[in-house]
Design a protein around this nucleic acid. Structure first.
Length: 205
DNA sequence: CGTTCGATGCACT
DNA sequence: GTGCATCGAACGT
């Protein structure tokens, strides 16, 4: 396998759907005092502009969505339903609000730490479930509001290509939203067992 | 298998 | 006060 190549700002400074597809197969890495956790990105969704009713930029600029209007290559993390942190990466040029929601990873590094962070009373968690779903992957990697608006060219939270691309891609409608469900702005790796969504939340028994 | 529903906190109007 | 880019336990087949 060839050396890992960090994804730099120019990678994110492109049309969001292109970035979304090329993100599949790359790795998200989070370094903390507790250790390093990472996973291969296998499912993402694009949220593009003020005309996209499901995008946080739909109401125009606010305090929360400010990162979307900033430069590409930054994180955008927010709390959803009062209990789940959702991790996004900002795309497109500064002033063009758009981002990609990271929905599922295949765990790569720090599985033990992920299990500790995800721990629930009584129940063991299968590897493929550790980072399945946007709330779960954020929890497994230890991503909270503290990681909002971080420069992905920094040393804490970043993405890298470890040579696991290209990949067999499937496009579909975005899930878990009530508006803006028409466009096919969700994409995932066809053969992955870690994809989220109805009926896939459970690893087969 | 399938579907429903409660938990929970913050940004926004 | 309202609504959410969710999760998983608890039901009903």
């Amino acid at each position: 396998m060839r050396d890992a190549a960090r994804l730099r700002r120019a990678f994110f400074n492109r049309p969001t759907l292109i970035v979304a597809e090329e993100l599949l197969g790359t790795f998200l890495v989070h370094r903390t005092a507790d250790g390093v956790t990472s996973g291969r990105i296998v499912e993402v969704e694009a949220y593009i502009g003020e005309d996209d009713p499901a995008c946080h930029a739909a109401p125009g600029p606010t305090r929360r969505n400010r990162p979307l209007y900033g430069p590409p290559g930054f994180s955008y993390v927010y709390l959803n339903y009062g209990m789940h942190y959702l991790t996004n990466v900002v795309t497109e040029a500064e002033g063009s609000p758009a981002a990609i929601l990271l929905r599922a990873l295949e765990p790569a590094d720090g599985l033990e730490l992920m299990r500790r962070r995800r721990a629930r009373l009584g129940a063991a968690i299968a590897d493929a479930d550790l980072c399945r779903g946007p709330g779960n992957l954020s929890r497994a990697l230890g991503i909270t509001l503290t990681q909002n608006w971080l420069d992905l060219e920094g040393e804490e939270l970043f993405l890298e290509d470890r040579g696991a691309r290209p990949v067999d891609v499937v496009w579909s409608r975005r899930i878990g939203i009530r508006v803006g469900t028409e466009p096919l702005w969700r994409c995932h790796v066809r053969e992955s067992t870690a994809i989220s969504g109805p009926g896939r939340r459970r690893t087969s028994s």
